[in-house]
Structure formats: C-alpha cells, structure tokens
Design a protein around this nucleic acid. Structure first.
Length: 921
RNA sequence: AGGACCAUAGCUCAGUUGGUUAGAGCGCUACCUUGACAUGGUAGAGGUCGGCGGUUCAAAUCCGCCUGGUCCUACCA
C-alpha cells in the first residue's frame, strides 16, 4: 500500500465527500441520545465567506464528535429567504432588461424570484460540502417552504389572538429607496459631519422671536410646536404663546417639556412629530398634530407649501435654508457632528415616517426569555454574552414585523371595505372566525413579514411544528446553537422568545458564541477594503492574477482598485497555495478561543497544511513497517516506548474531550497537534526505529512495536476525525485492517475515550529521563556544530541506580536518538576524559572534547549556561531569604523552591569546575 | 453618555483555581538531504506580559486608575 510522497488533499476530498453523502452517513442513526444542531440559516443570496467557513467548521466538528460517540445526531441545514436582499438581487437582474417589478406585477415577480432561487440560490449550501460539512442534506429547509409557511402563519394568528400582535400607525424606520419599513436593528447609525442651522421663528404677537437650532432644516415644514424647558428662565414666560412658522405661515404653540436640554443649541427645539422619534413622543404628550411632509420617496408632498412640493429632501433642505436666509431668519450655521441613520441594505438615509405597520408586543415575551437565561435553562458560552442579551432584552422595543415587499411570508390578515382587519389562516377561515358572509369583500394585506420573524421559528418550525412529529419530539430542544455575537439580538433573542411562547420550551440548551473572522490585522474583511479571503481559494489555491482580478472587479469604489491591487500583490506574491480543507478547518479550530475577534493569518494555515503532511508521512512510515502483520498476533510485549505513547495518547484524549466539553476547540486542536507531532512523530516513531531494526530486540517486542505503532495511529485518526475529516478517513481506510478495526467509515467508528488504567507513570518518567538525556547531548552537538551524521562516544558520571537502570534499558534508544558510537558508565572515582557536560539532576552526561570540540566554543557555551543559572539562583536565594515567603507560603511551595535552588547551585558548581578545567588547557 | 471585550516574542495567538526558568506556530540564525516527512530534522536567538498604583509571602493572572484599540447600546434638536 504505497502513498504519495506528500499529502494531496485535492486528490481525495471530493471522492470521500461524495461517498459519505451517497452512503447516507450524515443522517441521524435513530439510536442513542439525541444531539441536534440547527444551522443559523445563511441568506439564500449569500456565498460562503470566512465567517461561514469558521462557523460551519465548528458545527461539523461538534456533530462528527457526537456522532462518533454514538449520539443520534441531526444537523439540519437550510437557508433563509432574506426578503430585502433577495428581492434586490432579482430586481437588479430585471433592471438589466429595463424591467421593474411593477411592470411584472406581484405574482409574476414572485415567480421570477422562485426561478432565481432554483437556479442561483443556495450557492452557499453547495459550498458547504467543500468544507466537509456533514448535515443531513435530505432535510434541508428553506424559510419559504410550504410547511414552514404553515408554522409562520400559525404563529402570527396565535400571537394576534393572544393580543401580542397589533397593527398601528406609528413612526417607523422607512427606507425611501426600498420603500419598506425596517426594524431598529437594520438601521446602522454612522457619525457624520453636518451642520446645526439656527433659525429665527417670529412670535405671532410680534414681540420678538425664538431661535431654534436644527440639523434637518427641511423638516421645519412639518413643525407643529416649539419646545422649551419649563424651568428655563429665558423662555418659560413664552409657554402658551404661539409663533408663526415661516414659509408655512402656520401658528404653532410654544410648549414646555423637560425633555429639552437647556444647554444644547439655543435651548429651543422645533418639534416635528411626524418625522422624528423624540418629537413624536413629545407630540403624543402634548396632543400635537402630526404633519407628514414626505412621500414614500422622501420627497416633499402636498402637505407642504407649493414651492417645495416634489423636491427631494436634500434639495428641499438647501432651498429652505436659502429662503430663510433671504427672509433674514437664518441666524448662523455651526459645524456639528451627528449620527445619521442608514439602511443596512440600501445604504440610504433612513427616514422616520408615519405608516401603518404590524408590531409584536415584545414585553411579555421578553420576560419569559430573560427568565430562561437567568435560570440557566439556556446557557451562553462564553458567559459574558449573557450581559449583552440581558441589556437588550430588558430595554426591548416592540418589534415592527411588516415589510412593504413582495418576497416573503404574506401577512395572514384581511380587510373589509371599511378597513377593519381580520386575522386568520386563510380567507375562508377569516369568514368563519369572524362570521362574515359572502357579501363582505375581503382583501389580503399586501405586506410580508420580516425575515427574522420566520427565522425565529427555525428550531421547531423546521422539525414539523405545528404537527407534533417524531423529529420534533426527538430533537427539540436542540443541543447547541453556534453563532456570532452580532446576531444575538437579531436572531437568538427572538428565537428564545418565540420558541418559549409556542413550544413552552427553550430552543437550545447552549448558545456557543464565537468571534468574528477578520483579516490578519484585525480589519473587517470587505470588498471595499479588498482584503476578502475566500475559503474555497484557501482550499483549492488561486494564482495571483486571478486573486487580483477577483478582488478588484465589481467594486463600488473603483478608485481604490490600484491600492488593493498593490496590497494584494505584496501580501500574496505567489498567489495562494492550495492548502486543502483539513488544513483550513484546523486553522479555524486553532483560532476558536474565547475572544471576540478572530484574526485570520494565512501564515497559520500553511503550518497546518504541513501538519497534515506530517501525519500523512508518519502514516506512510507505519504502513511501511507493518506490512503483512497479523492484527490478531498474540505473541507480543510492549516496550517502554509503547507503554509511554499509549499513556500519552490517553492524556491527549482527555485534553481533546475537555476542549470539546468547554467549546475550546483551540485547546483541543493544540493538544492533538502536540500529541501527533511532538509525541508520536518526534519521539515515538524515532524510538520504534531501533526496535524494528533486525536483531536489536526479540520478536515479541517487535510485534509489540508494530501493534502499538498501528493501533495508536488508528486511534489518533479517530481522535482527529471531527477536526480533519478527509485525511483521517483516507489513512484510516489503509490502516484499519492492520489495527484490527472494523467498520465502513471512520465517520461512524467509535470515538476514543481515555482509559486511566493505560496511563503508566513509570513509563512516562522513564521516557522523560530519556528525553532529557537526549536533549542534553543534542544541545552539545547543536552548539558545537557536531553533525548528526557523526556518531560520538558518550560517558555518564555520577549515575544513580535509577540512572543506571534507565541507561541499560534505553541503550538502544540512546544510541539511535543521540547518534552515539558508544556508551560508557563511569565507576565512582573513575576519571572521565575532558568533556563537554550536560546535567540531568545529579547525572553528568559527558561528550569527550578530543577531536570534536573547540575549547573556546565550549567555554562560551558553559558561560551561557552558567549565567542563565546564576540569574535563577539569585532569584531563588532572594525569595528563600525572605522570611515572609518562608513563613507564609505553603510548605510544598517552599520545599519546591529549595529543591530547585539546590539543584541549580550544584549544577552551577559543576559548570564552574568544568570551566576552570577547560580554561587550564 | 453608558457598557462590553481586547492589549503577552517581529507577526498571529495560548497561558485553567495567583506559585512554570512565561509557551506554540510563522518568521529569523547556524548546522543537517540520517531509509516516514526539506510541507522535514537538530540546536539557538528573541518577552521589565500596554502604563501607573494597590491587595498578597508571591501577580501575565485579582482590584482600581490611565493610555491605546475594537465593538455594542442610547443619544442633544
């Protein structure tokens, strides 16, 4: 069974994936404890980015881990219909043919969207396969699925009947480009440089004027009051009087309200209840009229004076400032920094606008949702994210759930001709429910629901609710939700609220919150920064020209093109090498610690590609040395090395399990990496070499070595499989027979569990001894530039009984690992040749200098060692001469420090003896 | 304005309940194509753990303040 000289991921990944999928290995086994993860449904228009890659890799590791542990594992995938995003994509396509959705009409347009979805939607779920993800594809769901729509309707109707959904005319965040309301969370406020305009508003009685300051002059057309603080000595006598609003010639009152900050601006605020959230509330308090001055495009409407009608809001602003200036009413213009709200999809300034919308009354739902987390029913990992959750939940606003879009779940509400609303699952049901006869004409609400409304039902809606299906009974509540903190409010909070209300149970037991993937300098990856990495490119590799091309086409700001090109060429002069899926996944795991930012450094993936190659080549060695072996051979004895690697394996298994238990995949992956590279490859494989050399040891010991070699490898592969699925499967298939393992696939093989009884403390201690001695010799060789090709004689002096035993038992190992020509143990009093020394406790390891070592170089080496120790000795002496330390610290700690000091002092003494001996030459 | 998180080697990151000569990978230096692996091996250099104070016998670790960074939430028109 020969293997390629280097690991070639591209050669095996697709085949294995296809095989697994065809064999149905991803589906729940139907046996064992249920374990379920629901994918946070990515946007159907999306494609796989680094953040997805990271998240899916984590979920897949958790799923594979539990599947191998015998759980009945369901990982359910799907996408959400992303109302606004998807509608925009399709509209843009239509626009290319100069067609608008209004040309097509609603029904035709929605058909087009479905067509698009069939052909182009779900790119991301296809890309998921490249990551080796193992969800049950047969249960892939979409938020617009028929069954899911049923759940959405059911929830809407029930919430309405429970009094938790209502319709109301209120100010909403209106997107004048997309012509829809959006929720608070979809509004991004950005700090901008603007102005504060000071206008004089004349008092109606002609006795003077008030000066108001505003950042939005155009809204003055809708002013219905001017507010001052009731205690403001400057103005309080004016409360109750009126001013005549310039340009509109309307009389509006001066009111007192302690919302006004006396010290900001002029202390007088113009109040526009129809176009500002704070003014709206003040309007409610003072029963002010609301004058809406904008149409849906945020152009001035017919409620405003004729001169401004039809103008865009920003043009109107300019015009109004000019006109007021002409009237001598512009007092001054100040520079002013303010937060401007933008729509996160459209990028245009959001307008508070008065419309009829549907709302969820979140108060009662939030109360339960807070309780679930407080009482530990739902647990956040890391815990600190609970604060974020609580702070939002305790200050939650009612949730505007209607959207003026065509793509989405249509609101199950009907109106009669007088505008009275009837909520039911269908028009028929509405008639029955509200006892309406056929003469009443009903029309369905035109609006659709916020995508997150349906996403909120994801855990139970996708399992068949409202029907009580077997899957629902088995897998709900789900085990863990894996998500980014950016989505705690959007989604996690809403899922908890809705699921508690409808299922009377939590949606998931644990929320594992991971960080956000950024570039290696902590910058957010974005097209406009040109620092985007595509996970697929890291897997398959990409040449420089294609990468530059990819990063610089379709840019919103073409002027950045040159900069991005330069940066890309500098960072990736050779393009990106193909690293393979397992290396990418391993990189993700190594970064999955508790931090909030994940800085992805391409330098690290290369290291893990090398790691894959290391495992690959170690396996080649194992295969080469176990050819033709009988896995059932019973004539074997385990050597020290065998017992040691088996012990270390148990410890690695423990560490990996702990990493999974605490969601510290960085620690799990590190433990595994160290075990494979440092323990298994660097030491154990080297130790097997002298054992397998003919004539060195008896047959039973050789059998033991072969057995251990292949069995530890086989176990390690299973241990590593959740993290690196492809390479482990490929190798496992080659070694399983020799290791006496059975099964069709490593995916379904059992997961290794640490066995304390297999931890052999003596073996660990002995190998530690062996390593120390070897490293001592190697240090001398390395520092003295003695080639490893040259075998050297070695002397031991001052050996204890234990040292002598170790020397004897490890003679073969020592000869090989330290490349020795001979080993001599000096008897007490016996004179050693002049040597370069290393010390392991009391044991002196001596490399004779004759013909090998230069006097000055050796003196320098000894001096370096000595000064290191001197620093330590000084530190320890100081510590131990401090009575407070000796009196107060635990006796063990003091004893430990004393031992260390003694040890260092002795070594130091020997070093200086040695120095003077050599110096005397 | 309030809050969270972060600051450890040139770079990207670990560091459990306070006690390690503070670790890893990459990069760097020297040597090495040794029969698994040069995507490798061996050895080495490199850190007043952001700053200042405090608690303690003992602080990278706990507390306070400051500086720098990232990000939430709420905003003064």
């Amino acid at each position: 069974m020969s293997m390629e000289k280097t690991y070639q991921p591209a050669a095996i990944e697709k085949d294995w994936y296809q095989h697994w999928e065809e064999q149905g290995y991803f589906a729940p086994s139907g046996k064992g404890e249920p374990y379920c993860i629901m994918i946070p449904p990515p946007n159907v228009t999306g494609s796989l980015h680094m953040g997805h890659g990271f998240q899916e890799s984590i979920m897949d590791a958790l799923i594979r881990y539990h599947r191998m542990q015998g759980c009945n594992t369901l990982w359910q995938v799907g996408t959400d219909h992303a109302g606004i995003a998807t509608q925009m994509v399709v509209e843009r396509l239509l626009a290319a043919d100069d067609v608008s959705r209004h040309d097509l009409g609603r029904e035709k347009f929605v058909e087009k969207v479905w067509e698009w979805k069939e052909h182009s939607g779900g790119t991301i779920t296809r890309q998921l396969r490249r990551l080796g993800a193992s969800p049950d594809w047969s249960r892939e769901r979409f938020t617009m699925d028929e069954g899911f729509y049923k759940a959405v309707q059911e929830v809407f109707v029930q919430l309405y009947d429970d009094g938790l959904i209502y319709r109301g005319k209120r100010l909403v965040n209106w997107d004048p480009k997309l012509h829809t309301a959006i929720s608070d969370l979809e509004v991004i406020s950005e700090e901008k440089q603007g102005h504060l305009w000071h206008f004089r508003y004349p008092l109606t009685d002609g006795s003077g004027h008030l000066t108001v300051a505003t950042t939005r002059p155009e809204t003055m057309l809708g002013d219905t009051a001017v507010a001052v603080h009731p205690d403001d000595e400057r103005y309080k006598h004016l409360i109750g009087q009126t001013i005549t609003l310039p340009l509109c010639d309307r009389e509006i009152p001066v009111i007192g309200d302690d919302y006004v900050d006396k010290d900001f601006g002029t202390g007088c605020v113009k109040i526009t209840p129809a176009h500002d959230f704070n003014d709206y509330e003040m309007g409610q308090r003072h029963a002010l009229p609301m004058i809406n001055i904008f149409n849906q495009d945020a152009q001035i409407n017919d409620n405003a004076p004729e001169a401004y009608r039809g103008m865009d809001r920003f043009d109107a602003r300019k015009k109004i400032v000019e006109d007021l200036d002409a009237l001598g009413l512009l007092e001054k213009i100040q520079d002013h920094t303010l937060k401007v709200p933008y729509g996160d999809r459209s990028g245009v300034v959001i307008e508070p606008w008065l419309t009829n919308q549907w709302y969820v009354k979140t108060g009662p739902l939030a109360e339960e949702a807070i309780k679930a987390v407080e009482e530990g029913e739902v647990e956040f990992v890391p815990r600190q994210y609970e604060n974020m959750y609580f702070s939002w939940m305790r200050d939650i606003q009612d949730w505007c759930i209607s959207r003026q879009l065509w793509w989405g779940h249509r609101i199950p509400a009907w109106y009669d001709e007088s505008g009275k609303v009837y909520v039911a699952r269908s028009e028929d049901e509405a008639r029955k429910k509200y006892q309406l006869n056929d003469k009443v004409k009903l029309t369905q609400d035109e609006d659709v629901l916020d995508t997150w409304f349906s996403s909120g039902l994801w855990t139970f809606g996708t399992l068949g609710w409202p029907e009580n299906t077997d899957f629902l009974k088995t897998f709900h509540p789900t085990s863990v939700l894996v998500t980014g903190f950016d989505i705690i409010f959007f989604w996690v909070a809403r899922m908890i609220m809705l699921t508690l209300h409808f299922k009377k149970e939590i949606p998931f037991k644990t929320v594992y919150v991971h960080g956000l993937v950024r570039d290696s300098h902590g910058q957010k990856m974005s097209k406009s920064k040109g620092n985007v990495l595509d996970p697929i490119d890291l897997i398959d590799g990409i040449d420089l020209e294609s990468l530059v091309e990819k990063r610089t086409t379709g840019m919103m700001q073409p002027h950045l093109k040159q900069k991005i090109e330069k940066m890309t060429r500098k960072e990736f002069p050779e393009g990106i090498a193909p690293y393979g899926t397992d290396a990418l996944r391993y990189t993700y795991y190594s970064l999955a610690s508790t931090g909030r930012d994940i800085n992805f450094d391409v330098g690290r993936i290369e290291g893990f590609r090398n790691f894959c190659n290391k495992l690959w080549n170690a396996s080649a060695y194992v295969l080469m040395n176990t050819e033709g072996m009988d896995p059932a051979e019973e004539n074997y004895t385990l050597s020290l090395a065998d017992r040691w690697i088996i012990s270390r394996l148990q410890e690695a298994e423990k560490a990996v399990a702990e990493g999974f238990r605490t969601y510290r995949l960085d620690l799990a992956s590190q433990a595994l990496y160290d075990f494979i590279w440092k323990d298994y490859c660097d030491w154990y494989l080297e130790l097997t070499k002298p054992m397998l050399k003919p004539g060195n040891v008896d047959e039973a010991t050789q059998n033991g070595t072969r057995r251990t070699l292949v069995r530890v490898l086989e176990t390690t592969l299973r241990l590593a499989h959740p993290l690196m699925p492809f390479i482990t499967e490929e190798i496992w298939q080659k070694v399983k027979a020799r290791a006496g393992a059975e099964g069709e696939t490593i995916m379904l093989a059992s997961y290794p569990q640490a066995d304390e009884n297999k931890i052999d403390a003596q073996a660990i201690a002995d190998v530690e001894w062996l390593k120390s001695v070897t490293i001592g010799v190697r240090n001398i060789r390395g520092e003295m530039n003695i080639s490893l090709g040259k075998n050297i004689p070695l002397y031991f002096n001052n050996a204890s009984d234990n040292d002598k035993r170790c020397i004897e038992e490890n003679r073969q190992f020592l000869l090989k690992l330290a490349a020795l020509e001979s080993i001599t143990v000096l008897a007490p009093g016996e004179e050693a040749p002049l040597s370069a020394p290393a010390y392991v406790g009391d044991l002196e390891i001596l490399v004779p200098m004759a013909g090998l070592i230069d006097k000055d170089a050796e003196l320098a080496r000894l001096q370096k060692e000595a000064s290191k120790l001197q620093t330590e000795v000084k530190r320890l002496q100081g510590k131990l001469s401090n009575a407070k330390f000796v009196d107060n610290a635990p006796a063990e700690v003091v004893a430990k420090e004393k031992d260390k000091l003694k040890d260092y002092e002795q070594t130091l003494e020997k070093l200086s003896e040695q120095q003077s001996k050599i110096a005397a030459l």
